[in-house]
Nucleic acid binder design. Structure first.
Lengths: 317, 317
DNA sequence: GTATTTTGGTTAATCGATTAACTGATGAAG
DNA sequence: CTTCATCAGTTAATCGATTAACCAAAATAC
């Protein structure tokens, strides 16, 4: 009573001070386990990631969740699964046994998932994933907004013939980025199919080949929007081999803004950033809100993808 | 008693089965908080990282610690600090209040540190760091071994004129890699100082300039050992600009084996891998050992750095 | 001057699991 | 047939904090 502010006026100010002094002298620290047993609150949040937790790509998601949690006096209890369903359920169980106050379910990349039934009534927020029916709170990147953002960089510089290199992998990001680009190109009165290259993996090597094809066409585009930064790396290489310099002969924009690629390429790559840090923060704030008031309706949030402007865009020749 | 194996023969096999069946039916899960209060063991390990926890670079360290912990029924409670001393102490305190069984202190890169006094008698293992006096268990990469490994790739292919591009930043890794390389070059009867370039930051851009200088020398080396993969990226670019092809005209080896760089470069870069995953595992195993037997002497471990062989080495012209 | 509140503190129950100590019945030993 | 050990269960204390319920003394109201 003396140490906590709660139970306020049950103790005199002078006695309170004496108790506090004694506690300080003895180096007393409250035992959170005992407190948790009594209050049924552990001030811990479970973070379940399918490989995300320890993958370079989305470390910022943990960072964001961690920071927001810390500010509210919570700690993160992390479990990384390989995305396997059984493993995820086991992870959730392990966290529930430890009486975590809520769970963050994070995925490696933006996708639609179902919340495992074992979650029961444990408050839960989806990170970089959403449910089909909106039954759980979730936050995902605003891929459409980000795509419009980088395309605006190009159109703003005067480009209309904007190519796109995407992957055939069936992911949410591909679908949205592709559709948004198509819309934009069609709005310029061009046929998107003349400017589209599909490769079977969004990595440098296939992108390199794809880019060689795209840039060898008689009416090659003056700018390329790449599905991601690794694809952009392949485009840079292809451009160099064809004697095209970036951005003078070819403007390039991309998505993801990966810290080891986009700023390191020469010239620096203009790329729409995946707001992992912000999503992590948002998810915790939302989770805490739901802890306070479990009755409120779940929220689906789209996090803006800011454009990191660098030097890969200039007006067409 | 029926559920745990302990307290063994206090209960009949038939009753035990009945209890278990009832527990399963009710979906009973033990409350780890209550158990922890009684047993004074929470089956949780604190992971304190100075920015490491959520930095792409060393995610594998967490992954390794996480996996080893999981296998032993432990979970990781993570706190990321900015390396600040006060913040680290606060983090340790927060973990101690939560009665974690032990602490892993991880640093961003290999360095010598002091164990904060607040750690008290909490069992603790250093990850990617060590103490000057060996008073705590620790694990760091075997930089010397890794350097010898990649240099052996070069000498094995017939190179003797092996250049080195390093940073002037004062880190443990620089000192060991540099000294080992000097030794090796001197053993070939050459003067290391003729083959050494120092740049003020181990990133692509300064490395690019440094490489241009090194490779423009009349007696340019036939191979380069780079301080890290980002430096190697700069070397690749410089070589391309000078019309030198890798590996035919110039062999390149490096350190760190970063997953987004070394395998993505063309040709793939031969690089000594920092064994983050293995170090993470080792640290947990060592911590658990110390939990079982707090009396055993602390151990300083050097984790081997295996060479990831790719296509950036061939015999000199 | 008596009745009622307020103040400042104290007691004891509780959270859920572990575990030492105890009890009765059965079986074995002498 | 008595004694003692073993087996199978039951009771109750404990871990450390929270909190409802009590209680005595002082302050205030009427």
């Amino acid at each position: 009573m003396a140490l906590n502010e709660t139970g306020g006026r049950r103790i005199g100010p002078e006695t309170r001070e004496r108790v506090r002094a004694a506690a300080a002298e003895l180096g007393y620290r409250p035992n959170t386990v005992a407190r948790g047993l009594r209050t049924r609150r552990t001030q811990m949040i479970g973070f379940v990631g399918d490989d995300v937790a320890t993958t370079p790509f989305a470390g910022q998601m943990i960072r964001g969740a961690h920071d927001a949690a810390r500010e509210a006096g919570f700690l993160l209890l992390m479990i990384d699964t390989s995305g396997d369903k059984a493993e995820t359920e086991e992870a959730i169980g392990a966290l529930q046994e430890r009486q975590i106050d809520g769970i963050l379910l994070a995925t490696m990349y933006h996708q639609v998932v179902e919340v495992p039934a074992v979650i029961g009534s444990t408050p839960c927020v989806l990170l970089d994933a959403r449910t089909a029916d909106g039954s759980a709170s979730s936050v995902v990147p605003d891929e459409r907004g980000g795509t419009l953002g980088v395309l605006a960089e190009l159109t703003g510089a005067g480009h209309t013939r904007i190519g796109h290199i995407t992957t055939t992998e069936d992911v949410e990001a591909r679908a949205i980025r592709l559709a948004t680009w198509r819309e934009r190109v069609a709005a310029n009165g061009l046929d998107p199919d003349d400017l589209l290259i599909e490769i079977d993996q969004a990595t440098t090597r296939p992108a390199h080949e794809g880019a060689l094809r795209l840039l060898s066409r008689p009416d090659r585009p003056t700018a390329v929007f790449c599905f991601n930064d690794r694809v952009a790396m392949g485009v840079y290489r292809a451009a160099a081999e064809l004697g095209l310099s970036v951005p003078e002969d070819l403007s390039v924009v991309s998505y993801d803004d990966q810290e080891l690629i986009a700023p390191e390429l020469q010239p620096g790559l203009t790329s729409a950033a995946l707001p992992h840090y912000q999503m992590g923060r948002w998810a915790v704030v939302e989770l805490l809100r739901r802890l306070d008031d479990p009755e409120t309706a779940p929220v689906q949030h789209l996090m803006p993808c800011p454009v990191a402007k660098r030097d890969s865009v200039s007006p067409p020749r």
